[in-house]
Design a protein around this nucleic acid. Sequence first.
RNA 1: GGACAGGUGGGUGAGUGGUCGAAACCGCGAGACUGUAAAUCUCGUCCUUCACUGGCGCGUUGGUUCGAAUCCAACCCUGUCCA
Length: 379
Amino acid sequence: MAEFSFHIDAHKGAARTGRLETPRGTIRTPAFMPVGTAGTVKALTPDQVRSTGADIILGNTYHLMLRPGAERVARLGGLHDFMQWEKPILTDSGGFQVWSLAKLRKMTEDGVVFQSHIDGSKHSLTPERAIEIQAALLGADISMQLDDCTAFGVPKADAEKSMRLSTRWAQRCKTAFGDRPSQSLFGIVQGSVFPDLRQASAEALVDIGFDGYAIGGLAVGEGFDAMLEAIEATTPHLPLSRPRYLMGVGKPIDILEAVARGIDMFDCVLPTRAGRHGQAWTDDGPINVKNARYAEDKSALDESLDCPASRNFSRAYFHHLFKAQELLGPVLLSWHNIAYYQGLMARTRAAIAQGSFEGLRRSFRDRWCAGEAASGDAE
RNA sequence: GGACAGGUGGGUGAGUGGUCGAAACCGCGAGACUGUAAAUCUCGUCCUUCACUGGCGCGUUGGUUCGAAUCCAACCCUGUCCA
């Protein structure tokens, strides 16, 4: 029996719920993966992250390669041991930094050369090196192919060129990955907002054959509706039997709409970043605990969640912590936000299993899409 | 009682004749954040107006000047030192 396997337990339309089995544990899908870029889910201890129900977290090739260095992590026993997270870890390949750090890198057919944002030193990241770092040195359970995260707004010809490069890199990653029965490798669909490019990308990746398929290059400015259209143009061309991962997304409404279109896995910095900035996510939408109206609000953020940060402290206390710039503020609010997201995923899984997913989805749509656009709109 | 120094917007504190409703930082008010160069960034913050405009305004009062937070006089207050 394969050490990696994906089972779908129930589905409702395109939405499905299931389990991705790995040697380090089961990932319940649809899953939200907290982002732990630099070997830490910012502001949270592994225990706190575990307590929210997270089955898997992310790490980042580019950031760990620069500091502390992939070889050093390997000498220290691998990323799991280093950061004391024994459950699965998915590592991003550095492809996102191709986009977010566009000013600090040069691309060629062979790969990307980054100029470190820390000390200016040069670091080469090829598909082969990206796999070596993720699978061999960090010890990621799920490695991502190196890709070129296409910027939004580029002409179709450029989007196609970028997508084709990502496809060639996908093949090189697959070859470099070789036979690793206790680890897995995901390909990444690109193609910007062009349906035929998305389809071509998906089909090419399926031909190569991956353990799972990610959709990249979204939530980069295209807007809510365009993002959903890009997903719709992609998922029909991916095998039903493999997990689909929408990279970098998103707000709760984004996640529910993507689940409705057949996505199984998500990651997003939003809950942790927002948590550090005073924004708390709730079923009523995001609230800013720094706002004056919470100064004497005795209510908890969300008493329905089994998380101390969500139910034990008043909004007034959060308000005070942030106004006083106390470190506990970002810690507790990141904790709450991750717990909120995990709670949302648990409700989503249960709703799909019980046949009530449409109701859950509609309740969020009604609340957050009424009138103005709900999220992710291009500026 | 005497000698110095100084009084600027909620706070600290620039500015010493026009370009000053007055730098900067803080505070306060609000917004943003989507595979993390983010414990970050942006906007607003005298009154009035949707806006135009107008009205106050750099301790107080009076003066010099076309024009004053800036120069002069008196007064009030604060700090340090001496008695």
